[in-house]
Design a protein around this nucleic acid. Structure first.
Lengths: 257, 257
DNA sequence: GCCAATCATGCATAAACATGCACAATCACG
DNA sequence: CGTGATTGTGCATGTTTATGCATGATTGGC
């Protein structure tokens, strides 16, 4: 029916694209008049362009797509690989919705970095370093135990902290061992720290201890509990068999990859 | 037939956003005249922007929001030198043996790094990041306020934290302001955070607020206290004179180097 | 404590919208 | 040539959206 003056669909859409490309908005009613088609047709054009990501539909017309701004690259600070593996082995015990206590120590700092963030976990800790690491993981809830912070252990261990811990019943506790031995059990360098770990072990429903190989077969001045008080001991796979045998008492020994 | 010249809704809101982005307030009546729409329409725009967290509604118009959603650790990385100077200015108020409360925020993280470690200070904080920084300074004693840690504010702010704070009377508090304005006073992004700051201000013998220039003249949803409630406001020396004048009320304004 | 400015809310209306349908033009195959 | 499917378009429909206005409540300066 029509002859020369009418634009074909492609031409029309190309022209709309061109205008949007020069950072101009377009208005449905105007385009309809200009191209001598109904507004319905223009709206259909705009819908198609929007679906192809070439414009932003708005009430009355369309806007150019804004220049995408650069996103920041993620950075990763990872602890030592061995501790990360121990932490991963402990992580196998956590289940959806659990409250997990992270004691002080570098292995538990690694745990703060590798615990799954999709299980709706609540992390409790008395160590500011670990708390700071957990805070950077959006999927984890964090509860901080306060109190006088001892600079040697790097965690709050005093009466205040103990009182706060008494209000809690964690589902699982990752307990940091300063030293582990079949004879003396788990021991600590500081008496308040040992006291805190004892309370923690009593409060928690399940207790895990992880220790790198260097700590196995050593002892520290303040006893925490014998190994039988813990549900699992997590050690490295390449531990000397003799040392490993010295641990093989009541609690299952879990070997990390 | 004439071509539509009026702005589309999105264009209007984008323009408002742009002006707020350049740290300017907007006034409802002016915008209505300028865009040739009713004030009701502008108010609706501002309400929507506020609901999306892109401005703060105030009587007569709206103010920009200060720091657009950077994550905590990202925020800690920026503006450190300027914040270090602010922190140094605040440090002039601390004296030997004092108990210093460091509220959450990047300026107070800077304070944790620059506070003198030879004055036998006791640092109290409810922010794990700051606690972690203080722990690395051997000369500082650290007391940690525990509780449920809010990921937005990066600090423990709930009932537990408040109860712990009630037991303390810090000699001086470095209070982190999310936004500072002569009109709205000190405001915060979170209501529990605001509540905590109010309690902190009451408990502490002396209260300092420091704010980088971007925060001056802005407001956040939750009021803490009017400026008169603080002993000193610490600002940067190169702050725009108009903005600076807008603050010149009761508390002395201290200018950092 | 007064008054004007500012505000939230509900309502009315016109514009813009999506959707389904009809029709003409085009194409695809024989 | 068909003729049947596909496509582009316009129109009728009922819905949604943006806006202005009326009303009554809040606010902030004086």
């Amino acid at each position: 029916m029509q002859i020369t003056s009418a634009l074909l669909l492609e031409e029309r859409q190309n022209e709309i694209r061109r205008r949007l490309g020069s950072a101009d908005r377009v208005i449905a009613g105007d385009l309809a008049l200009e191209f001598n088609v109904s507004e319905d047709t223009i709206r259909r054009d705009l819908r198609e362009l929007a679906a192809a990501g070439q414009c932003i539909r708005v009430y009355g017309g369309a806007l150019p797509v804004p220049a995408p701004d650069l996103s920041l690259s993620e950075r990763y600070g990872i602890g030592t690989e061995r501790k990360r593996r121990l932490a991963l082995a402990m992580s196998d015990f956590v289940e959806r919705g659990m409250t997990v206590f992270l004691d002080a120590g570098s292995t538990n700092l690694a745990a703060a970095l590798v615990l799954p963030d999709t299980l709706d976990l609540t992390i409790v800790t008395h160590a500011p370093h670990i708390a700071a690491a957990v805070m950077d993981r959006p999927g984890l809830r964090l509860f901080m135990i306060g109190g006088k912070v001892d600079s040697k252990t790097g965690a709050a261990t005093g009466a205040q902290a103990q009182r706060a811990l008494e209000q809690l019943r964690p589902d699982i506790a990752f307990i940091g061992a300063c030293a582990v031995s079949g004879v003396t059990g788990v021991t600590a360098f500081d008496d308040e720290d040992a006291e805190f770990k004892r309370l923690l072990t009593r409060q928690s429903r399940m207790n895990l201890v992880a220790a790198v190989s260097e700590k196995i077969g050593t002892a520290a001045p303040y006893p925490v509990f014998p190994l039988s008080a813990f549900d699992h001991i997590v050690i490295e796979g390449d531990l000397d068999p003799a040392k490993r045998a010295s641990l093989a008492i009541s609690p299952p020994v879990l070997v990390s990859a």
